[in-house]
Every structure is written in C-alpha cells, then in structure tokens.
Design a protein around this nucleic acid. Structure first.
Lengths: 230, 230
DNA sequence: CGTTATTTTGATTTCTTTCAATCGGTGTGG
DNA sequence: CCACACCGATTGAAAGAAATCAAAATAACG
C-alpha cells in the first residue's frame, strides 16, 4: 500500500530534479550501514524496515521501525555518515534523493529546508519517547506501549484495516527495540494476549482493546504529530 | 566558564537581530515545560541543566544533560511545543532567541538553517546512543559509559581540568538517565570507584582510568562530532 | 520431506528493585 | 555552640523482574 506524498505544486519541479530516482530493496538489504558514508537519502514509498545500532559485544538496539512515508538517511545527509544502520525488513520501494543537492535545497527552498529540520525534530521527539519507555517502563508496559504506538503509526499512514495492521517483524526485533530478552518478550506478548488486549501472529497485529492497551502502556495523550512534508 | 560561539563575521548582524537578549536562570528554574508552547530558544552560555520527561506514574526519564554551548528548545522552535522539560541544575546564563524569527532565518541564512538541521541530527545521534546504552548495557556498563561520555563532552567544551570535570547533578539524576534505581546506581558507582576507574563526589568527577572506563562502557571509537555552529 | 528459522515452555540463575535504616553534611533557630 | 530538621549518599536484607539455559513445538522453505 503506497503513500502519496503531499508535495506542493510550486515545489514539484525543483523536487523532481532533487529526486534522483526510485529504488527497489529486497528484504534484508542494508540501506545504510553504521559509520559508512552515503550519497543518498530515501523516502519510503512502501515496505518496512528497521533502524538499529550494533554494540561491540554483539548486542543490537533497534532504534526504530521504518514505515512508508518516513525519511531515512537525513543523518548521513547533514553529518556525512550514519550513526546507525537501516535494513529493509520487507521488500521496499524507495524514492532516492541526492545528498549533494541537499545544500541547494537549503538555498532555494527555505520552506522545504524548514520541513527537514521539522522532521529531524520529530524524530528526536520519537527517540525521546522510546528512551523513556526503555528506561522507565516494565516489560508489559513496554510491549503494550510499542504495540499501541505501532498501530497508531500504521493507522496514520493508512496501513491499518480496522483494528488490524501489518507487523512484519520478528519477536527478536521487538525485543531488541525494548531492551528485553527474546524469551521474556515472548512471554509478555502472551500475557498481553491472555489479557485480551492485543494479539500478534502471522505478521499481523490485531488490537482487541485499544483503550486498555493505551492505559497499560501509559501512553501519553499526544495529539497526532503533523505528517512530514517531504 | 563561558563558551565562545563561532559566529561568522558575515552573519553577525543578522544573528544579533535574531538574538533577543540574555537571561539568567537560577537553579531549579524550568526553562521549558513538557507540552507547553514557547516563544524562545536558548543557547547555553554557562551553567548546566537536564532535559527530562515525566510519566503518568511519576517516574522520570532524563533525556540528556545540558552543557554550555548547547541549543535548547529547537523542538519548540519548529514543532510549536516541547515534548520534554528542561530544568536548570546550576545557575545558567542563556542567550535568548526569538522563535518567531526562526523562519526568517531559513529564508535569509540558508547556511545557518543548515546548521540547525545539523544540530538536530546530532541530537538524534546522541539520543540513539543513549537509547542503546539504556536498552542493551548492564548497570556497570551504563555508568561507565555515562561518566566517560560526560567527561568527554566536558572536555570538548573546555570544562575539564586535567582528569577532573564538574558534575553538578545528584545520583538520582544519573539513575533516571540510565533507567536504574537510585540504590543500584549508588552501589554501581561505588564499584566503579573500587575498580579504580572513576570517582564522583562533591559535584566533581575524577577520572582515574579513562581507558578502562571506555573499555568497560563499550564506548564506540567515534571521532569527535564537529561543534555546533550556532 | 528433511532442514532451518521462529516461537513457545519450563527451570534456574543473575541482576535490580524495594524496603528500611543509618550516616554525613548543611542550614536554622535558640 | 548545640539541638533539630532536611536532603543526599550509603548499606544490608529480602522480594521481584528479567536473563540465561535447554529443549520442544511450530512454521517456513527448497
């Protein structure tokens, strides 16, 4: 299911020149590798992925899940290189932009430039939320929070159908995102299912009690963050 | 100890008009309150603070420590409101900017605007690191990592004297930053001291073995991030 | 259908938190 | 100068949460 991006008419010509092309990524493809320089940034048209960091001791922290509409690689765009990796979980279709043109954009499209900063700020906000969850919530709260959040995001980009949305990750991915062990994640997931709150199988997340999930996950009542413009 | 900001000659006039004034904040002052709108952004000239989020259940996650040279409030600047609070820990001297002028800056100073995005990206990178630490490292690694990082940052802004630097926080603040209990933080700090790695008392951090600290904290060998330009 | 990857369980160990006090400074008022 | 209140640091003991270990059950796949 594709997402259509709200380009303003005026910007279309410039953006099209900024856009280098489209790209297809198969599952498992490394879009970015931590520490590597990259000449491109991407906007996700369809498919899903993960951002993550790897530690010297082999452990992995999933920084976030990548959904359609997301911009990936801004860090590489402005800092020269990525400080985390990004991998395609499912097949993905990407809109490719040229890093070298980024500064042009700042000179010719101040409002687009502003949008980029905005996106970075939103990303920062999301990371703050994640940090808070990982740092301060217990296992069941973490899982509840993450499922609630994922469903809400899916809904925002039109991927949810009723109370169901695709969730094409492995439990290990969720565990690595929340700082839990696989086993404990599994058991907690089961507990959530037994409580009649949510159920995840066959890459599909089924919400049974959104209210209860939000309550358990101590989800903040946050008005929807405006959609990214690029 | 003040930090001098590297304004380019050319930009001086504009930046000065952008700058609204200076401000003094006493310890305990709330610079920003989560969810509140704000008309200003600040650059820290001197003093230290904390960024944090508060949960419904009363727990607190410290998102980061604010040092001289830092820009705070960018989120409010571009998103309209802050998603976390910022509090002065010591007395602080701040350079105040006007939020309403922010968009002007994007139109007249593309390179300054780029710097802002850059800063946001750096912030995102730091948060990713913190998330990784909180999610994947054990207590002693967390503490080692955080002390190492704090010392390194202090050094970068010229606050360190030899192997010592000011660390005017409470153990509770560190605990809340790392997702540990106060008690455990205390015990772990002691362990670190017994290992001859680092010692923290009277608001001063004394590093005894930077190497060992880095090793234990699994600190990545990351080249210094270029200093912010604003 | 055999092989591999992911999910699920149970038992056990390790790490953290919680609870309950004590200790040490600091500031105040007498 | 001392009694008293207060706050942060420190300890010990006990309870609790999550990780690790080991293995079985399922699902996915060529």
């Amino acid at each position: 299911m594709d997402v259509f991006l709200p380009f303003a008419e005026d910007d279309l010509r410039f953006m099209q020149s900024f856009k280098t092309g489209e790209m297809q990524a198969e599952p498992g493809t490394q879009l970015f590798i931590e520490g590597a320089k990259s000449a491109h940034l991407f906007t996700v048209l369809s498919g899903m992925g993960v951002r993550y960091k790897t530690l010297e001791n082999g452990r992995r922290q999933v920084i976030g899940f990548v959904l359609p509409g997301d911009l990936v690689g801004l860090q590489a765009g402005v800092m020269g290189e990525m400080r985390h990796s990004v991998e395609a979980t499912t097949a993905m279709r990407l809109c490719v932009f040229n890093r070298s043109r980024l500064f042009e954009l700042y000179q010719n499209q101040p409002d687009r430039a502003f949008d980029l900063t905005f996106l970075a700020a939103v990303e920062e906000h999301f990371l703050g939320d994640a940090l808070t969850t990982v740092g301060q919530r217990g296992a069941i709260e973490k899982i509840a929070w993450s499922l609630h959040r994922f469903y809400t995001r899916s809904q925002a980009v039109g991927l949810a159908k009723g109370l169901r949305c695709p969730l094409p990750y492995r439990q290990q991915d969720l565990a690595d995102a929340l700082g839990l062990s696989l086993v404990h994640t599994n058991k907690t997931l089961r507990r959530l299912k037994d409580l009649g709150l949510a159920e995840w199988s066959n890459n599909v997340l089924q919400i049974n009690d959104l209210e209860g999930l939000a309550e358990l996950g101590l989800v903040e009542i946050t008005e929807a963050v405006p959609r990214p413009l690029i």
